[in-house]
Amino acid sequence: MDDSKLIELFFKRNEDAIRLTHEKYGGYCFAVANNILANREDAEECVNDAYLAVWNSIPPQRPKVFRLFLARITRNLSLNRYEKRAAKKRGGEAELALEELAECVKDSVSIESEVMAKELAEAVDGFLDTISRRDRGIFLYRYFYYESAEAIAKRFGSDPEKIYSILFRTRAKLRKHLEKEGYFNDR
């Protein structure tokens, strides 16, 4: 079914919308969640939570790209669930990726409000405009979809070492960009 028709079903509060969304994007959402949680049960629960969140969001929202809208919600719910896990139950790619990001913003100012979070998102979005398509793709597969370097290397026909190297350089560039945007205390 076409995405626009799916969205219309949500607007009409037709419960078939969720079933059809699951049929079309269930696997995709599960992959997004499972990349982060690395646990089948948790990932499935997250996907179900995501459907509910979508149900509550549409209307009023009308996403332009429904698939990405779903991915965003699934991803963020999965990250929240990941954070709530006991430390010993964490691990997987999410742990590594989050450590990499934490290192990238070490000694930065704290984000204390929704407004600041939104501004940070805009700064990151602006940063992505400044790097090459390939580097952007690699960066987002890593830090949006939480894919492993091996999986990304396979996508790009490269090797994991090179992917790590590109990610390292991109994080360094991101840090510089955020420094310019004032996200680090003057030293």
Partner: peptide, 29 residues
């Protein structure tokens, strides 16, 4: 700012960038 903050910011990147990212491997190849 924590890694999670940054990750949530990355989660809010525009559709344009995400769609572009999906195209990137093909272009790269």
């Amino acid at each position: 700012m924590t890694g999670k903050d940054l990750s949530m910011a990355i989660g809010s990147v525009s559709d344009k960038h995400l769609l572009d990212a999906e195209e990137a491997p093909r272009r790269s190849n």
